[in-house]
Amino acid sequence: MSCWETIADYGLRSLGIGERLLPRSDFTLCQQFTLIGSGLIWNIYFGTLSLLTGFFLANALALGKAARNPLLRKPAEWFIFVFRGSPLFIQFFFAYFLFLQLKSVYPFLAPLTAASLGALIVLVLNTAAYSAEIFYGALMSVPKGDIEAADAYGLTGWRRFRRIIWPTMMRLGWPAYTNEAIFLFHATTLVFFSGFPTTHQKGDALYYANYFADKTFNPFVPYPILAFYFILLTLTIIGIFGAINARLNRHLPRVQQPRIRLLPQFLR
């Protein structure tokens, strides 16, 4: 069987498309690359969706934490503390447990016990808490002068926030947020590993790496392949976030623009 056939058979296996049975014997490198890569689809699905959704929630939480009204501030503070203070591992456990209970009371909530929705919700809440803390920190360090200048221009309320404070907050928080995005994608490997069961052997990259390690009894091939894929993924994230970073900072003079360096400088 050529490698192209393997890719055709297993390239979308993690979504349930293609060959139903996983390879059972004579494991080739090509099979390992294909299936682990196929599983990566789930990591990207979880990572991207939770990052996008979590972003909005995080902004709301950051503002909530900065609010003067304790009715807004206290819940935001507690939410952030609980989700940042406990291991994701344990959050998954509780979420799965809770969703099962909900399912038995309200049968229409059954999709929550599937990883594709249930785990996504946990990841959204988790990344929202971490990002909210980053944005809150950034909000606190918005230069006083910016706000005074906005006042001088007669900007108030929502317009002042939308035009002046929020862009600066994003700009300041962006490098740390890039790190959070990387961590989040890494955290997606925990979904099937500890929290949610896999159905029909449709799992993420770690699930298939684990499958091959288990079948070949040799962990030194599948896990480095997994690592390779994740390095590519991380570089992509850094690239995208770097581009956004450049856009956020485009008004600054060239020398002051903080760049996320991709190519290290060897000669100084």
Partner: peptide, 19 residues
């Protein structure tokens, strides 16, 4: 720095101890 940061910690834990 780049490699270890780019890879989920679980992936290392799975084979690093034996290695």
């Amino acid at each position: 720095i780049a490699i270890v940061r780019g890879v989920p910690d679980i992936a290392f834990f799975m084979f690093f101890v034996i290695a």
